[in-house]
């Protein structure tokens, strides 16, 4: 049954991709919109992955930023090939998240949330202070190889889809069951001889790796990065995607990412109104649809079927 579900997801993602390309055509703006959506979906699924063990990892923003900076340096300063630049982003995220996790995962709940918040903000501050990383203005001119240009959106879709699928498969595996068990009651998990901190560390590292690769991809899609792109708002928005889409499964996060990315694009350039509407959308969905769109849809379905019965 497990593999059948995975198959369904693959088919669903592929169908969505084909449909999106077929319907929206290949003009540059929509292609970019699709790529941004894919990146945001990875962020949302990565954040949700850590929620499976019951932790809110605001450090997601920091690891995304590290991936982006690493990818940018590989391409612009070291002249490494594009696939290596992508991989380097993921690897750096693994190394740093391991160190970060070893110290901070001894705490949990609100403490972990706040410390990961502080981590993201401090890492961002460090970018602004380091001249080699471009300081406040960041790094420009991060281009993927020219031959890849027509394929960039397809590549992004496949790569992001692959990362999401990887996290989905982890969630469905025995490891995922341990994650859920920790979320429900970590003391019980401890008593059967499982090292909770170690499992949480594995969870953090997998999520950070995915987000790191997505970050490197981000650098090559936007071509320009600056410290301001990687503030605590990145994971906050990701959390909003999850909540608005529905946090019961992976697809909720993906749908939420798609809706809010498009909304954010429509609001761009409206100045303060952008903040008002985006914040308003988050607040309204929290008040009106506490289980997100998917949860709301399911409730509606149940209501209808009960009405008929």
């Amino acid at each position: 049954m497990r593999s059948a579900r995975a198959g369904q997801i693959v088919v669903a993602l592929a169908a969505a991709a084909v449909l999106a390309f077929a319907v929206l055509g290949d003009d540059e703006y929509t292609q970019h919109l699709l790529m941004w959506t894919a990146l945001n979906a990875v962020l949302a699924v990565g954040l949700r992955f850590m929620l499976l063990v019951g932790e809110t990892n605001i450090g997601t923003g920091a690891f995304y930023g590290m991936g982006a900076y690493m990818g940018a340096i590989c391409t612009t300063k070291w002249g490494l090939p594009f696939p290596l630049a992508l991989l380097a982003g993921g690897l750096l995220a693994i190394v740093v998240s391991t160190g970060f996790g070893l110290v901070t995962l001894r705490t949990k709940g609100p403490y972990f949330m706040l410390i990961s918040f502080a981590f993201t903000e401090v890492v961002r501050l460090i970018y602004t202070r380091v001249e080699w990383l471009g300081g406040n203005s960041g790094i420009i001119g991060i281009f993927p190889p020219q031959a890849l240009d027509p394929w960039m959106s397809v590549l992004t879709f496949l790569l992001c889809g692959g990362l999401i699928l990887m996290m989905y498969l982890c969630e469905q595996s025995n490891l995922g069951r341990v994650f859920r068990a920790i979320q429900n009651n970590d003391a019980v998990v401890e008593t059967v001889g499982i090292d909770v901190v170690q499992i949480k560390l594995v969870c953090l590292v997998i999520a950070s790796f995915s987000v790191g690769i997505a970050g490197s991809l981000h650098a090559h899609i936007y071509n320009v990065i600056s410290p301001g792109d990687f503030s605590y708002l990145v994971p906050v928005f990701a959390l909003a995607y999850i909540k608005i889409g529905g946090d019961a499964n992976v697809m909720g996060a993906v749908i939420g990412a798609a809706i809010l990315t498009v909304l954010a694009q429509m609001l761009q350039g409206m100045g303060s109104l952008e903040h008002v509407l985006f914040g308003g959308a988050i607040v309204a969905s929290m008040l009106v649809l506490p289980d997100g769109l998917l949860g709301g849809g399911r409730r509606l379905l149940r209501l209808f079927s009960r009405g008929r019965a």
């Binding site: 909003a240 100045g271 303060s272 914040g279």
Partner: peptide, 21 residues
């Protein structure tokens, strides 16, 4: 913890936008 976090961050953005306005 998580629900109130998202709500309060939404309020953070909303209010900052309103103040700017």
């Amino acid at each position: 913890l998580i629900g109130s976090f998202i709500l309060s961050v939404g309020l953070l953005l909303l209010l900052e936008g309103v103040y700017l306005w």
